[in-house]
Structure formats: structure tokens, C-alpha cells
Design a protein around this nucleic acid. Structure first.
Lengths: 198, 198
DNA sequence: CTCCGAGTGGGTCGATCGTCCCACTTGTTG
DNA sequence: CAACAAGTGGGACGATCGACCCACTCGGAG
């Protein structure tokens, strides 16, 4: 085994934990399973982390941070507000389809954090991040399509996040691409209906 | 300990398991914890169930069946379609607020079932049930308000379920009653907007 | 009253969990 | 070259998990 500083061990272990959780759920994220995935020994684990709980907290933080970046649009959308909304939802859905286990892991981690007293604030941060992200995207989209929201943007944001969560859960369960597509279309139309041209 | 037939033990253990899961999550649903909650001995458990997995499957089935009944309206709503929709969502939300741990347990059980190969079909049944229930309620509501859906009722149903799931997750995380209220109002208005008077 | 099967209690098994410890090796610093 | 800190390996700890076994005690049928 090559010598690796503890700081690098930490990120390697977090990545390994995400892999393991994606494959078998939070309950499979055993200390031993994680070090096996990372190709380390148990001692290396407890050299980088003082406890398994500390790692899990780091995993949640990592997933939150990564999720934040993945949702952001890579380019500026063109078209009506409904087109922009649909494109945004579709991009998220493509992400979901590309790596379903990962998104399932994110959901499980949110519920896990909610159950762990010391990590509840992380779950809250996670959803605050979602809402802020949605609000920013909605504000941006409205400006660039010359429209304005008829309801406070925070309300529209919360609605969008709720729709996204619901879309995720439903698709994870039945993997119905057609139904998800219709849901995206309808959701985009409804969200766009909450704005009028300025 | 009084003598209790195995069939009654089974339902008592399932109820105890639901309690334990609501209090501490799926991972806390240990055979011993369940038995302690039910006030039984370990032997009684393995006399009523051949394995812990068999109990968990029964728990999922139980929760699905119970959820189905809880959502149904107790009376006939009066007013516009939007009022009916809002009343329905509000009734669900009251249920959620009355017993948050229970609804959290339902979510965790759905993800748990999704992870367990032999139980994936149960998770699918669960969501098929939700969608069917929503579709029935929407059809009923449309008829009794003299309106008809401008989109296939299955699509509206899936949207409603997604909104409900999203509302649940968001509120479980931040417990923001005000935001949830606004979300309910907006969701009701949007759903009602997907129908026109006949 | 007898007997037999349904139900119960308590102890125990092997596996696995998180954690810890100690001897060892390596790279770096003076 | 010596010395020390950083990192590694493997084994072991106690706790807890699901499962099981066996001796027992009831209650109801004959």
C-alpha cells in the first residue's frame, strides 16, 4: 500500500462510501465495506476518521455540495419560460436516469440525516440549498424571458423542488419513462403559468 | 405471559415494528427491539415469523394497506374544484403533522423495499396504489364540480402524487408550516387549472 | 383424567458490527 | 546517520445482530 496523507484518505473514503451506499443503501455502508471499496485497511480508516459517524456526516456534506453543482445549467437556455422550465427539469431527469442509484442514495442520506440528531441541520442545509438554487434559477429564467412571477419566487421555488422530489421518487419506484416525461411537461407548463410577461 | 395464537402475535409484532420504525427508523427495527416493544420473548417472534425479513415484508404490506384508507376523504367536499383540491391536500397535511414519524417511516420503508430485491414489487404496488387513489379522487372531484380534466386523469394523478411526496419531504425536513401552507394553496390552484367547466 | 400439540422462556450459537491497540515501515528533518 | 512523526497492517476487543434449540407449561379434545 502506498503512503497517502490522511487528508487524501478522507476524500477517498468518502467517495468509496458514496459508491457503497449507491450500490446497497445506507445500511450497507459498513466501515469494513467502505474500506474494502477503497482498498484500505481498517486502521487507515480510523487514522483518517475518528469514528464511522464522522465519516457519514462528511458523506452527507459531500453529497450536498456535489448535488448543488450538478443541477446548475451548463448553458443559457433559449425559448419561452415553459421551454426553459422543461429543459431544466429534463436535464435533471437525464441526470437521474444516468445514475439512479446515486439519486436514491441522496434520498436515503437525507432521511438518514433526519434520523440522526447531530445531522438534522445537514438535512436542513440540503433543502435550503435546493430551495435557494431553485429560486435563483427561476429568477434568472424569468429575467431572461422577460416575465415575472405572479407569486413570490420562494413559493415557486418550493413548488419546483417538491415536483422534482416527487418526480424522483415516483420514477425510482416504477421507472416509467413515459409517465415521467408527461409529468415533466405538465410541471413545466404549470410553473410557467405562474408568471406573466412583464 | 398470556397465551396468544401465532396469528395474533403476527399482527401485534407488525404493529410494534411500525412503532419502532417510526421512533428510530428502519435500522432500529431490530428483532429484539420489536420484541421488546411488543412485550414478547425472542422465541415468540420466531414462532410467529420464520425470519426477520418475513416480518419486514409484512410491515410494508401493512403500511401500504393502512395508508390507502387514511387518505380517503371522510365526507363529500363542497365548493369549486380548487377548494376540493385544497381541502384534500390540507387533510393529508393535517395527517402528516399529526404523526410525522409515521409518514417518515412510510418513506423509509418505501426506499427500504426498493433496496430489497424480494420486496421491490411491494414498493411498486405502493405507488400504483397512490396513483390509482389519486386518479379516483380526481375523477370523483371533477364529476362533482361539473368540470373535466384537460389532460388524462392519470397524468394529473401522477402530478398530484408527486406534489404530495414533495410536500411531505420538504416539511419533514424543515417543518415550515407557513411554506407548506403556501405550497398547498399553489398546488391546489395549479391542479384545478388543469380542468375546465364542462 | 390424560394426553398431545400449540405456545413460551431463556440461554446460546456464529457472524458481523465499530473501535481500538501495538508493532512495524516509511519519508523527512536535523 | 540518527531520530521522530506520519502512516500502515493485522489481530483482537466487547457489543449486538438474527437465528435457533430445548425444556417447560398450558389448554382443549378424547
Amino acid at each position: 500500500m502506498p503512503r497517502i496523507p490522511a487528508s487524501e484518505r478522507r476524500v477517498a473514503l468518502v467517495l468509496a462510501a458514496v459508491q457503497v451506499i449507491g450500490r446497497g443503501g445506507v445500511s450497507a455502508a459498513t466501515t469494513r465495506a467502505i474500506v474494502a471499496e477503497a482498498g484500505m485497511s481498517l486502521a487507515s480508516f480510523h487514522y483518517a476518521f475518528t469514528s464511522h459517524d464522522e465519516l457519514m456526516a462528511e458523506v452527507v456534506r459531500w453529497v450536498i455540495a456535489e448535488e448543488r453543482g450538478a443541477i446548475l445549467p451548463d448553458g443559457i437556455e433559449i425559448g419561452s419560460l415553459e421551454d426553459v422550465a422543461r429543459a431544466g427539469l429534463q436535464r435533471y431527469f437525464d441526470l437521474l436516469r444516468a445514475d439512479p442509484e446515486r439519486e436514491q442514495a441522496v434520498n436515503e442520506l437525507a432521511l438518514y440525516a433526519l434520523r440522526t440528531p447531530d445531522m438534522q441541520h445537514l438535512a436542513r442545509q440540503q433543502y435550503e440549498g435546493y430551495h435557494a438554487l431553485a429560486a435563483a434559477a427561476l429568477t434568472f429564467a424569468a429575467e431572461h424571458t422577460g416575465s415575472e412571477w405572479t407569486r413570490p419566487v420562494d413559493e415557486v421555488a418550493r413548488l419546483l423542488v417538491a415536483l422534482t422530489d416527487g418526480l424522483t421518487l415516483a420514477w425510482l419506484v416504477d421507472r416509467d419513462d413515459t409517465a415521467a416525461g408527461h409529468l415533466i411537461d405538465n410541471a413545466a407548463a404549470l410553473v410557467a403559468g405562474m408568471a406573466h410577461t412583464r
